[in-house]
Design a binder for these strands. Structure first.
Length: 478
DNA sequence: GAGTTTGAAACT
DNA sequence: CAGTTTCAAACTC
C-alpha cells in the first residue's frame, strides 16, 4: 500500500530542488484540462478500454500513446520550472504553428503540466489508500456526473484523462474483446482511487486536510464536514491556499525529496532508504520512534535524516543514524518488514497496478486538481515529465529484464534516474494495465516509441479544451 | 465503531 | 522562535 503521505521530488544534480527554487510558482496550477465530454461517460469507449493498449488508435487513427506523449512533449518544458523565463518560453511557444487560440490553450496547458509533472497528481493523494479501500466509483470518477464542478470550472475528467492509465497500457496483444475492455476500464477506475479526507472542523481548507494539502478537491467519497474544498468554492480554496503559501511558500511543496546520491543523502548519513529519498523538513516524532505512520518520514517510506528532530528514531527506512538492518530489535524489524512489504506494494502500485488492484495508483482525477502539485506521483515521473520522450518504453531493451519491474521500492525509485537526467529507461515501466508480454511486469505504463514531434502535433490536434483558467495567484518566490 | 494516541499544522 | 492548541490520521481495543 502506498502509504507515503508526502510527495517526493527530485533534486537536480546540483542539489537544487526545482520546486524549492521556484516555490512561488507552484500556484500556477489553476488550469484544468477539459476534454470533450461527448464520450466522457462511455465506459465502453474504445479510448478507455481500447484493446490495442498503448497502440490503440483514436478515430483518426492516431495512436493515443502518441497523444499522451504529445502532451508531455508538447507541454512539458525541459525544465520543470515555471518562472518568468518559463513564461517567456511559453511566449516562445506562441511562435509555434498554432492558431492563436490553440496557442493560448497550449500555453495554459503547459503551465499545468509544468507545474504538475506526474500529470498533476499530487502524490499526497496516492498514499493512505487503505488496502481494500474501494476505488472511486464511476460516478465519483466523473465530476461532471456529480455536478460537483461548476460548469465554468470543470476539471473535467473525461475519456481522455481517464484514458491515461489505459494509455499507458503496454503492448498488449490481445485487448480486443469487450471483456478486456471492461477489465481495463475497471482497472482504470481503480487507479483513480484517491485518498479521502475525513475533516470535520478544518473545512478542508487547511493542510490538515489531505485533499487540500494534495491540491485536490474533496469529492463525494470524502467524509468531510462543512467542506469548502470544492470547485464551487474555488475562490475560497485558492485564497486560502494563497494565504497558506504566503505563510509558507513551501507549504504545498512535496515533503519528500530524493537526493541525487543513491547511497547517502545530502546530510551525509547512510541508510537504506531507496534512492535516498528524504523528508524535506524531517519529522518530529517523540513517541512513535518513527516506526509508525504518524511519522511522516516513515509514512513516506524514507529514512530519517539529520534534519529530523525525532527522538528515539528507529525508522526502518533509515534512522538518523544508521539503517534498520542494523536493528536487532524485534519490533523494529517487524515494523521494518511490515512497512517494507507495504513499500513493495507501493512500488508495485506504480509498476504493477493490476497485480495489486487494491493498491492501484490513482490516476489523476483532474477534476480534483485545483492547484495540483506535482506531488508524489512526480516522484515517479519527474524525469519522464521533464523531458523524457516517453513515460515508458515498451518492452524494448529486452522486456525480459524482469528486474526492471521488480515490485520493490528500489525498482520504483530506480526508475528515477539518480543523475537527475530526465531519462527513464524504456524498460522501466509505469503502468496500470497488464502487459502479458512481461509476466513480471504486468502493469507497465508503456508507450510505443514514437516521434515526439509528430506526437506533439497529434496531441495538439486533439480536441483538448482548456477550461476554467482562474488566474491562480502567482506567487513570486521570495 | 468508539476511543486513544500521535505529530503536523496552526495559532499565540 | 518557542510553547500551546487544534486537528485529523493512525492506531488500539
Amino acid at each position: 500500500m502506498l502509504t507515503m503521505n508526502s510527495s517526493i521530488i527530485h533534486e537536480n544534480t546540483d542539489g537544487r530542488d526545482w520546486r524549492t527554487t521556484n516555490s512561488g510558482t507552484t500556484s500556477f496550477i489553476s488550469n484544468i484540462l477539459q476534454f470533450p465530454l461527448d464520450k466522457a461517460n462511455n465506459s465502453e469507449n474504445a479510448e478507455f478500454g481500447d484493446p490495442s493498449g498503448s497502440c490503440k488508435q483514436s478515430e483518426s487513427g492516431e495512436p493515443v500513446m502518441d497523444r499522451m506523449h504529445g502532451i508531455l512533449s508538447t507541454c512539458l518544458p525541459d525544465e520543470l520550472v515555471v518562472n518568468d523565463s518559463g513564461l517567456k518560453k511559453d511566449d516562445k511557444e506562441g511562435n509555434c504553428n498554432e492558431s492563436n487560440h490553440q496557442q493560448f490553450s497550449i500555453r495554459r496547458r503547459c503551465l499545468v503540466f509544468e507545474k504538475s509533472p506526474g500529470f498533476g497528481l499530487h502524490l499526497n493523494s496516492l498514499p493512505n489508500i487503505p488496502k481494500g479501500q474501494s476505488p472511486l466509483s464511476k460516478s465519483t470518477l466523473s465530476s461532471t456526473n456529480r455536478g460537483e464542478v461548476p460548469d465554468d470550472n470543470k476539471g473535467v475528467v473525461t475519456e481522455n484523462s481517464y484514458e491515461m492509465p489505459a494509455t499507458f497500457g503496454g503492448n498488449e496483444a490481445d485487448h480486443n474483446s469487450p471483456e478486456k475492455k471492461r477489465q481495463k476500464f475497471e482497472l482504470v477506475e481503480e487507479s483513480v482511487a484517491c485518498k479521502r479526507c475525513n475533516c470535520k472542523r478544518s473545512k478542508c481548507l487547511k493542510l490538515y486536510c489531505d485533499c487540500f494539502a494534495a491540491g485536490l478537491y474533496c469529492i463525494e467519497p470524502c467524509s468531510c464536514q462543512d467542506c469548502f474544498n470544492k470547485p464551487i468554492h474555488e475562490n475560497v480554496v485558492l485564497e486560502t491556499r494563497r494565504q497558506i503559501e504566503s505563510r509558507n511558500p513551501l507549504a504545498f511543496a512535496p515533503k519528500v525529496i530524493r537526493t541525487t546520491n543513491g547511497v547517502s543523502d545530502s546530510m551525509g548519513e547512510i541508510n537504506k532508504t531507496p534512492a535516498s529519498a528524504r523528508h524535506k523538513r524531517g519529522c518530529n516524532c517523540k513517541r512513535s520512534s518513527c516506526l509508525k505512520k504518524y511519522c511522516e518520514c516513515f509514512q513516506a517510506g524514507v529514512g530519517c535524516s539529520l534534519s529530523c528532530r525525532c527522538e528515539g528514531c528507529k525508522n526502518s527506512f533509515g534512522r538518523k543514524e544508521g539503517g534498520c538492518e542494523s536493528e536487532s530489535d524485534g519490533d523494529n524489524l517487524e515494523a521494518c518488514e511490515k512497512n517494507a512489504s507495504e513499500k513493495s506494494s507501493h512500488d508495485t502500485v506504480i509498476s504493477n497496478g493490476q497485480e495489486h488492484p487494491d493498491l492501484s495508483v490513482p490516476s489523476p482525477d483532474i477534476s480534483r486538481l485545483p492547484f495540483a502539485y506535482s506531488g508524489k506521483l512526480a516522484a515517479f515521473f519527474p524525469h519522464s515529465i521533464k523531458s523524457s520522450p516517453q513515460l515508458c518504453g515498451t518492452q524494448e531493451q529486452g522486456s525480459s529484464d524482469t528486474s526492471s519491474c521488480k515490485p520493490k521500492l528500489e525498482s520504483n525509485l530506480d526508475g528515477i534516474p539518480e543523475s537527475g537526467t530526465p531519462e527513464i529507461p524504456k524498460h522501466k515501466c509505469f503502468t496500470l494495465v497488464s502487459n502479458p508480454t512481461s509476466p513480471n511486469c504486468k502493469g507497465v505504463f508503456s508507450t510505443p516509441n514514437h516521434d515526439s514531434t509528430s506526437s506533439s502535433t497529434k496531441w495538439r490536434s486533439r480536441k483538448l479544451i482548456l477550461r476554467s483558467v482562474p488566474s491562480f495567484p502567482s506567487f513570486s518566490p521570495p
